[in-house]
């Protein structure tokens, strides 16, 4: 492997990596919050609200991110909206992963016994406080590993933004591949950088899981 070449392409890839990190970070935060909205809708006391949320989850689960990105980027201009490519990437990732995060939260909440809520209510807590202070902390701890895996999925799916020319890591690599004659080096470098980011995400989750262990 040609190390001089590697050093030459590294700055280009690192520029792409910056955008990948930004995409992923924004999508992570957006999906973490969006998931709360989804789970609230899914557990709403109003049947119509539950129905709308179920339909939303259904649509998101059953269509590819690629299609969603194209609808946002190429479809929206037809109705007079012109979002930037980067924004389209973030929004598509948030839309799709809010649905997944919501379902993960819900699984966590449903795994906490009803008696925990009853104990909290019997101490005079309002239902919302019982949920946020007693049930959610336990639920989130239980689903931390699943959330960690989903975070890696978000990181990986951010590469799909390359299809609408966001010059994140994948697009940066593709451009290099297009004009250089050394495909392996570029490819391995890209893969290594993604792996490093995935390792950081999973490591972060492990740290959280260590700091907030599941207790029974």
């Amino acid at each position: 492997m040609d190390t001089a070449f590697l050093l030459r392409i590294l700055p280009v890839l690192l520029e792409g990596l910056e955008i990948t990190v930004a995409l992923t970070a924004l999508a992570l935060v957006g999906a973490a919050i969006g998931g709360l909205i989804v789970v609230a809708g899914r557990r709403s006391r109003f049947a119509a609200m539950r129905g709308v949320t179920i339909a939303y989850i259904d649509v998101m689960r059953n269509t590819p991110v690629l299609v969603q990105i194209f609808i946002l980027y190429f479809g929206l201009p037809e109705i007079g909206l012109f979002p930037e490519a980067f924004a389209c990437g973030v929004i598509a990732l948030v839309l799709q992963n809010s649905a997944y995060a919501g379902e993960i939260y819900r699984a966590g909440i449903e795994s906490v016994k009803r008696t925990q809520t009853e104990a909290a209510l019997s101490l005079g807590m309002m239902p919302r406080r019982a949920l946020f202070d007693i049930v959610l902390p336990q639920a989130l701890r239980r689903v931390l590993p699943v959330l960690g895996n989903q975070a890696v999925v978000i990181l990986k799916d951010s590469s799909i933004a390359s299809t609408i020319s966001v010059t994140e890591l994948t697009q940066a690599g593709k451009l290099l591949l297009d004009r250089s004659a050394a495909p392996y080096e570029t490819f391995f470098m890209m893969a290594a950088l993604y792996l490093a980011m995935a390792a950081v995400l999973l490591g972060g989750m492990k740290l959280l899981a260590w700091r907030f262990p599941v207790r029974t």
Partner: peptide, 16 residues
């Protein structure tokens, strides 16, 4: 495998 985007693998193989 689970730490690398599928798109990168597809593109990588396509070029390599």
């Amino acid at each position: 495998t689970r730490g690398i985007p599928l798109l990168v693998l597809l593109i990588g193989c396509y070029f390599s």
